[in-house]
Each structure stands twice: as C-alpha cells, then as structure tokens.
Measured scan of single mutants.
Amino acid sequence: MEVRTIKVFTTVDNINLHTQVVDMSMTYGQQFGPTYLDGADVTKIKPHNSHEGKTFYVLPNDDTLRVEAFEYYHTTDPSFLGRYMSALNHTKKWKYPQVNGLTSIKWADNNCYLATALLTLQQIELKFNPPALQDAYYRARAGEAANFCALILAYCNKTVGELGDVRETMSYLFQHANLDSCKRVLNVVCKTCGQQQTTLKGVEAVMYMGTLSYEQFKKGVQIPCTCGKQATKYLVQQESPFVMMSAPPAQYELKHGTFTCASEYTGNYQCGHYKHITSKETLYCIDGALLTKSSEYKGPITDVFYKENSYTTTIK
C-alpha cells in the first residue's frame, strides 16, 4: 500500500517557510505537534488534498525554529505562539472599519479597549522592536488589523473576551517599542525636605499616572512627601515624541487643539466601556464603527496623549 502524501510549508514567522512532505494517514499533531492554519487549530486533523502548498504555523520545537521565533517575536515564552494563534482565530472574524481616516474595530468580545489602543497607536510616533509587531502594525494602518490585535493580546497575556485596560495595554506595548531616546527629568520640591531631581528613561519617561493635564504637570502637581507634608512635583525636561497622561476616570474637559487623542471610560472596574476622542479640525468621538463630532467635550476621561518633541522648564 502506497503512502499518500502532500507537500506543505511549516513556519513560526510566515517569513521562513520549511518544506514538509506530510503523510495523509496521520494527523498534523502526530507529525508536527500543535499546528495552526489561519489561526485555526488543526492539530487533530489529517492532511487533505486542499492543504497542498498551504502554510501551517507550528510551535518552535527545534533550534532553527526557536531562533526564527525569537528573532521575529522577541520572546522565548513557549506558550506565546499558541496564544497568538488562538487569538487570531477570533480577531480574523472582527470587522476593521476605516473611521475618520483611522483603522478602528467594530465592537465584539469586549474589544473596546483594543480599538482605543489601536486608534491611539496610529496617532503617536512609535516604532516597535519585534519585527512581528512592526509588520502587523503597518498592515493594521492599511486596514488589516487582525494579526496586530492578536499579537497585542498575546504580548499582554490576554484572551479574547476578557476586559482590558488601555493604560495597561499601552504599557505592555511600550515595553516592546523603541523608547531608548526618551528621557524625563522631574523635580520634587518640599518646604521641609528641599528639592530632589529624578531622571527617568524609556517607558517611565512617557507615562504618568495622577493627572490628565500635561500643562498642569509642567506647572506642578501636589504629591505627598515622605515627611508627610505636601510637596510639588513638576516637569523639568521632556525628550520624547509623545507623552501619555493618565488618571482614574473623572469628568474632564478636553479643549480642541490642546491634545492629540484621549480615552474615555464609562462604567466601573468590573464592567465598563471605552471610547476614543481625537482632536482634528474639530473633536471626534470614535466608538467602534461609530463616529460623532463636537466642538467641545466633557466626560469621564482616563488617558490623554500629547505630541511632544523637546521641553525644558522655565521655572527657576
């Protein structure tokens, strides 16, 4: 009895394709271990004539594949690729409408935090270190965002349907971005203890939790000093293409032309909904596939993004 075979390709990165001759009487799992086709788990399936010449994702289970996976995804987590594939199996079914010149995501599976993050990423200057993220990001900007969303979920250790947080998501993504040249110098002034300067680099240099107003941050924000008295913390120097200011959701007025974009969060910790506000020729609110415009805006804002380049204080 002759062994019926077909020729397929296996890959971990969709760049390096490895030619395989597979036995049609055995499952993919018996031949390769966990195997995925377009995100779908085909591990328990036997090869079919229609699979001839198709590319299958496999887990990096030998040295060659491990090197290829690390170079593309910059992670050695053995569960990463499987999590990416199972997320992709959902995100490829989502709709990605162009809204006001940006790629958004039609609401499904509690994905409003991903839509808000995706919209924000198209408006701030950011370059990702893992080629996987950078490639998928370019495709997302062009309207094909399924891979990018699935990668975000995998890097953030999230599953489809789980509630997510924009600030946490951005923080994970910033860790995989090139923020080497970003720098922030802060000064804390206390009447009792004097003053202390701190220099922050990388992710810490672009994120701040405690106030939404970048102007206020430049002037000074009140913080408790270690001595128990009130101290003032203010920005001395900022070198970065953008800054992200966050605070627990509270009524906040966004003035046209003073910011790049913002995240609105309605609801409580267990259950809520994100919308995205962007400042173009007027203010726009993007909620999944829905767009509304207004000249002014007041609502429960939790993150505001500002364009920056270089700032030095005039406070002496």
Rank of each mutant, 00 (worst) to 15 (best):
N111W: 07
L81Q: 05
R141W: 08
C112Q: 01
K191M: 10
D303E: 03
I15H: 04
S86M: 09
H90F: 12
K218R: 03
G29D: 08
Y137M: 13
T211H: 08
L151F: 05
V3R: 10
N110V: 03
F80E: 08
E162R: 02
A40F: 11
Q196D: 08
K183P: 07
A140H: 08
L179W: 05
Y155T: 03
T169Q: 04
V206P: 04
Y274E: 00
N89F: 14
N61V: 11
T260N: 00
T116G: 03
T266W: 03
N16Q: 11
K293F: 11
S295P: 10
D63G: 05
I223N: 02
D109P: 09
N16P: 04
W107D: 06
C190V: 01
Y306Q: 00
A117W: 01
C271S: 08
K7P: 09
A40D: 14
L179A: 07
L88R: 07
M245W: 01
K218C: 00
K307V: 14
T192R: 12
I315V: 15
F148K: 02
L121I: 09
L186K: 07
K106I: 08
T313H: 13
Y208R: 06
C193N: 05
S171T: 13
E215G: 09
E281G: 07
N147C: 11
D165F: 11
E2M: 08
K298Q: 14
F56W: 03
H176S: 04
Y172P: 01
Y137C: 07
G288K: 08
V203G: 07
C193A: 03
R184M: 04
E308N: 05
A136S: 08
Q238W: 02
P300E: 14
W107Y: 08
E308V: 08
V3L: 14
T169P: 02
F80N: 01
P131N: 01
K44L: 13
Q20K: 14
Q237V: 08
Y274V: 00
G164R: 00
H276L: 08
L102P: 03
N178Y: 02
Y138P: 09
Y234I: 11
D165N: 15
K280N: 09
V42P: 06
D38R: 09
D287V: 01
P78Y: 10
S279I: 05
C149E: 01
L212Q: 01
K158Q: 06
T27Y: 09
V21S: 12
H256E: 11
T282C: 09
H256F: 12
D23P: 08
P248C: 07
E215W: 06
M207D: 02
R184E: 02
H276W: 06
M207L: 05
Q197K: 14
Y252A: 10
V166I: 05
V166A: 10
T313P: 07
I286W: 00
A136W: 05
T75I: 10
V160S: 00
Y36C: 01
Y208V: 03
E144W: 06
P300T: 15
I124L: 14
L212A: 06
T292Q: 14
T5R: 13
K201S: 13
Y311L: 08
G33D: 01
K158H: 01
K233E: 11
K293G: 10
S171V: 09
T27M: 13
S263P: 02
D287A: 03
T260M: 13
D180E: 11
V12K: 09
L290D: 13
K201H: 15
Y72T: 07
G202R: 03
A250G: 10
K229A: 13
M245G: 00
I315G: 15
E71K: 08
G53T: 10
N111Y: 05
T55N: 13
L81I: 14
K95D: 15
K298M: 11
N16A: 10
T302R: 03
Y172T: 12
A40R: 10
L126R: 03
D180I: 07
T19F: 11
C261S: 01
A140I: 10
L114A: 04
R4A: 12
L283V: 10
K158T: 10
C193G: 01
A69K: 06
P224E: 11
E71A: 12
M209N: 14
P300D: 07
Q175D: 07
Y57I: 11
K298I: 13
I45S: 13
K293C: 11
K92Q: 14
T313S: 14
Y155S: 05
P78L: 11
N157L: 02
D287Q: 06
S50I: 14
V236A: 09
F305A: 03
W107A: 03
A136F: 06
G228P: 02
A132C: 07
Y138K: 13
K93I: 07
L118A: 02
P248H: 11
M209W: 15
E239F: 06
G161N: 06
A262W: 03
G39T: 13
N268T: 13
K92N: 10
T302D: 06
G267R: 15
S295D: 15
E125Q: 13
T55E: 04
N309L: 13
F259S: 04
A136D: 04
N268S: 15
I124A: 01
V221A: 06
L17Q: 10
A289T: 07
V189S: 13
T266V: 09
P130D: 02
Q195L: 13
L283A: 03
K46L: 14
L118P: 04
D38I: 08
K275W: 08
A142P: 04
K293H: 12
L114D: 02
T278A: 09
N14M: 13
Y172E: 07
V58D: 02
Y265K: 01
S25M: 13
L291H: 15
K95N: 09
L119F: 01
C225A: 06
K93F: 10
D77T: 07
A145F: 02
M85W: 13
S171K: 15
P241M: 01
F174T: 00
Y214N: 01
Q98G: 08
H273S: 00
E308F: 04
A145P: 11
R83C: 05
W94Q: 05
L173K: 04
A87S: 10
L65S: 11
V243G: 00
A177D: 00
I105L: 03
A177Y: 06
T120N: 15
N157G: 08
A69D: 09
R141A: 09
T159S: 13
A154Q: 05
N157C: 15
S213H: 11
L235T: 01
H48Y: 10
A205Q: 01
L235Y: 00
L126E: 03
F242C: 03
N129F: 03
H276C: 08
H51R: 05
P249L: 01
D23H: 06
N147T: 10
R167D: 04
Y297C: 07
P131G: 03
Q216C: 07
T76V: 13
I45W: 14
A177K: 03
M244W: 06
L114W: 06
L173M: 15
P300M: 10
I105W: 00
S171Y: 15
A87R: 04
F217P: 01
T192F: 07
Y269M: 08
K298L: 12
A142V: 13
G164S: 04
G288E: 00
K307G: 05
N61Q: 14
G220C: 01
Y311P: 14
A150D: 00
